[in-house]
Amino acid sequence: MTSVTMTVNGKQVSGEVEGRTLLVQFLRESLSLTGTHVGCDTSQCGACVVHVDGLAVKACTMLAGEAEGREITTIEGMENADGSMNVIQQAFQDHHGLQCGFCTPGMVMSASALLADNPKPSESEIREYLDGNICRCTGYHNIVKAILAASGQQVSAVAAE
């Protein structure tokens, strides 16, 4: 067992992990932050996306030990200071960018990283950026609309694919 210390959603946390413990396991099992989902265990689906030092990372591809000293943000850390949904979360709700909700935390985390890098992405840039996130329910159309809305852009002309 190895001791790890990191900052998660603004709070310093520590725990004991085996060398093979994935970051997603540590978040869910040790910290009870179950908003980060495990969908495939093979880094295909994107349900486990978190931010590590501000970058979108699939938490099933990173060992908890590799997060030593790093800043981690999960979906639980995305809300506004008053506990309300942030602009991206609200846009997903307003534009019906979710159905079953399983992929939604990873989608919101990916969308947040995209908008941090590119505040006004085009529809095609959004679709390309979300290539590593799988949604079985929505067909992505409303997810793209939600991200456009969160970026302050018009959503009426979004092409259905």
Rank of each mutant, 00 (worst) to 15 (best):
A149N: 07
P105F: 13
L114W: 07
G46K: 12
N133K: 05
R70H: 06
L98D: 02
L114D: 02
N9D: 15
M78L: 15
G97W: 04
N118A: 10
Q25R: 14
Y140G: 05
G39R: 02
A67T: 09
L22I: 07
N118T: 15
A116L: 08
V52W: 01
R28C: 11
S32P: 00
D53S: 06
A149H: 15
R70L: 07
L98K: 14
L31Y: 01
H141L: 15
S43M: 15
I126K: 08
L63T: 07
V38M: 12
N80T: 08
N118C: 12
E71V: 15
V87F: 12
N9W: 02
L27V: 04
I72N: 11
S3N: 03
Q89P: 00
Y140L: 05
H51Q: 04
N133A: 03
T61M: 11
I147T: 09
S30C: 11
G139L: 06
G132M: 09
Y129V: 03
I88Q: 06
A150F: 05
D94N: 14
A116W: 02
N86G: 05
S84C: 09
V158N: 02
L114P: 00
I126L: 10
M62K: 14
C137L: 08
Y140V: 03
H96N: 08
K120W: 01
I134P: 03
N142L: 01
C45A: 09
A111I: 08
G83E: 10
T61G: 08
T2S: 13
E79D: 14
E128A: 14
P105A: 13
N80E: 15
A146R: 07
V8R: 10
P119W: 06
A81I: 13
S84N: 12
I147R: 01
H141M: 09
S43H: 14
S84K: 02
K145D: 02
G101L: 08
G97P: 04
M78D: 08
